[in-house]
Write a protein that binds this DNA or RNA. Structure first.
Lengths: 146, 146
DNA sequence: GCTAGACCCTGTAGCTACTTCAGGGTCAAG
DNA sequence: CTTGACCCTGAAGTAGCTACAGGGTCTAGC
């Protein structure tokens, strides 16, 4: 199977597949005489594994770790647990900051419900006021989101 | 005020301030004879405005739009509303996918609560099974998060 | 006068996870 | 023999910074 077919079979972009190969996530496949990559069924599974992990927001480095662990059946499963726990913690932290962010944005949005001039816009006034406030107090307590 | 002082006053990194200048968010300030940047109080406010927006996850391009709008008091405030609405929608979409993600991760994590060998690890088995499943059905319904 | 250290400058590369582009080669069908 | 689909490599672009290299400037202390 060539790279285009692998792409179709896995739903992963051709370029992304080559990128994964460069990054060491996919082994360099055999080549035809013309230089085309030839993949086996193993590659499909490996690529799908990667895709599944990516859909869960797992980073490439961590996927690499998982792939290495998966290939050593005698390895200690604690590493997998640990990796997942960390990932869950990250996701929860992000969720929390996004929830706060949403509240702030909605509150901001409510400053200006009817269309009028920017000069009267509660939203921009809020922005500016917040900027002023920070400039005056000079010691912010909140941190950035994202 | 020099760039270091502006950095302290706003809590924005010196490098980031120069970056914002390169990106056109901050106007190129006056220079001393030795080439050092000199900032006015205006710059502090503008920089704080940017910082505030960034903390809300607003992208640099959108901040640019807001700054331009804010400088034209007669402009229509609807643009601000629209920008904010879009941003809120984005944040909500991200929240939703993160919530799903968290559930999936927690479910996955529960597959393997006691430390043992990778060969018996429910988590990795789940990953592999999911990859297999996707390979077989060949038409995924879920999309990626993040 | 001279040196250390803090600050400033520009320009460039690094980060993540890709995507896109330039500039080619290969192959099957018409 | 040409068209179009596919493949190749290597480099650059994306966002929003951060960090580094390799300098210049200024002030304080000896």
């Amino acid at each position: 199977m060539r790279i285009g077919e692998l792409a179709k079979a896995t739903g992963i972009n051709v370029e992304t597949l080559r990128y994964y190969e460069r990054m060491g996530l996919l082994q360099s496949p055999a080549r035809q005489v013309n230089g085309y990559r030839v993949y086996s069924q193993d590659a499909v599974e490996r690529a799908n594994f990667i895709r599944h992990c990516r859909a869960l927001g797992v980073g490439l480095r961590d996927i690499m770790t998982l792939l290495n662990l998966a290939s050593r059946p005698e390895a200690d499963c604690n590493d997998v647990n640990h990796l997942l726990d960390e990932h869950i913690a990250q996701v929860r932290a992000k969720l929390e900051s996004l929830r706060i962010l949403e509240k702030q944005l909605v509150r901001l949005r409510n400053q200006c419900d009817i269309a009028h001039k920017v000069s009267d816009c509660g939203i921009l006034r809020e922005f500016v006021a917040a900027a002023h406030g920070e400039a005056c107090t000079c010691h912010s307590s909140s941190d950035s989101a994202s």
